[in-house]
Design a protein around this nucleic acid. Structure first.
Lengths: 232, 232
DNA sequence: CTTGACGACCGACCGACGGTCTGTAATATG
DNA sequence: CATATTACAGACCGTCGGTCGGTCGTCAAG
């Protein structure tokens, strides 16, 4: 085969893109390094020149995805003049909107991520998202504490708790995703909405707010996310 | 090699025991099926006669461990005459005592379970413990709701949330474990205690209780658990 | 006691996969 | 133009989970 040389950054990106597509298409363990290099049009040696291991690719991928996600929400974090609760609700609202806009991709991602053989994928993504979100969340909580709106015993600890609390919704999401194509799709989506509402109340209480202060869902969010778009 | 025939149950148990020892000694992925059969004194064919796969062993192991754990706490769940909060605190207290009594084994387990290559081990154990604990927790919460002690929006959802909330402590536990043999062992243990106290407050609030109602830790618990026993 | 069937067990073998190694073409450096 | 370095190629390897054909113990039926 002819040797093709490109800028390292470009090659790296091509490999990452190929890996991303394959991971979310076939699953992480089901994707082999040979699959990745085949799609990226590269050799084994080239691959291991850019990455130390298959998991190294995943790590880089997760970090990049997490950073890109947060970047789309950064404006809300920096926006002056918002009190902490308004900021948090705006943050959550925008996050939901972005998800709905990317619904098909998000759906595919959820669909594959909770299947066997994808634990590492799930864990790495979760950890990467957590790592970039933690400081942002901690800042909001600290602001709320200063403003006297929130009432928490320890900002850092509560930030961590709230973050990992998000994982408690994942089981419910998995259930909804797996039921989405069945007849009970609507019911599953409604159940997820309700479950997310409960999650919101848990957040309220941990932050010392009245129930319902945080809008973690809006009606029909789960349905908009999970159900394939219907022709009008 | 001579052929040895035993009662299937006995063989199964021997394989499970060997697997348990090796998983918590070398780690899950680092343990090969050959390792397991070597320790159990059995052949490959015999192994796959009793278990469908390596992960099948783990599944059976996790379930057995989870069941045994809960069995030691069952008395408190069945004890009549306890209000929900007292029952919950008794449950937690007894769980702590059992952990401290088994401190070396628990320490070894935590030490290996958070290392790379043990995600599946961690996940299966967690899922198995969750599966057996969920109904128990839901019953306590339902009791508290009836008694008017707790105030939750939805018993089942809150039970799930509280369970997965436990996972939020695992990061902190992992940090403490990894620092236990260093000079900062004491400090790490104290940090873990504090972190667990925060967790308790989060539980209070989710259940609609005043801060401090649930005693999730007692002073020195983390130290008793993490620090190797000193000669007097 | 003989026989036959069945479940338990053996161990050589396999295919796939992540990763390595030697070598070479392209590019940067002097 | 010489030379060192980087980027890439692809054959190869070791390991590991899992398979498969066959064999041996056990026990019930005749």
């Amino acid at each position: 085969m002819p040797r093709i040389v490109k800028h390292p950054q470009e090659r790296r990106k091509e490999l990452l893109d190929a890996a991303r597509d394959l991971f979310f298409e076939r699953g992480y363990e089901a994707t082999t390094v040979n699959d990745i290099i085949a799609r990226a049009g590269m050799s084994k040696g080239g691959f291991y020149h850019h990455f130390a291991s298959k998991e190294d690719v995943l790590e880089a991928l997760a970090e990049a995805m997490a950073r890109e996600s947060l970047a789309q929400l950064q404006a809300i974090l920096d926006e002056p003049g918002l009190d902490a609760l308004t900021r948090l609700n705006a943050f959550l609202s925008r996050a939901r909107r972005l998800k709905v806009e990317q619904a098909p991709a998000i759906r595919a991602m959820f669909y594959v991520i909770f299947r066997p053989g994808n634990l590492v994928l799930y864990h790495r993504l979760n950890a990467a998202v957590g790592a970039v979100t933690l400081p942002a969340l901690a800042r909001i909580i600290a602001q709320g504490q200063e403003e006297g709106i929130f009432d928490v015993p320890d900002v850092q600890a509560v930030a961590e708790i709230i973050l990992t609390l998000g994982a408690s919704t994942h089981d419910a999401v998995a259930r909804a995703v797996n039921a989405a194509d069945t007849l009970e799709g609507e019911a599953a989506a409604a159940a997820l909405d309700e479950r997310l509402r409960m999650h919101g109340i848990a957040l309220d209480r941990i932050l010392g707010l009245p129930d319902g202060s945080i809008r973690f869902v809006e009606n029909g969010f789960a349905k908009a996310l999970m159900m394939p778009a219907q022709a009008p």
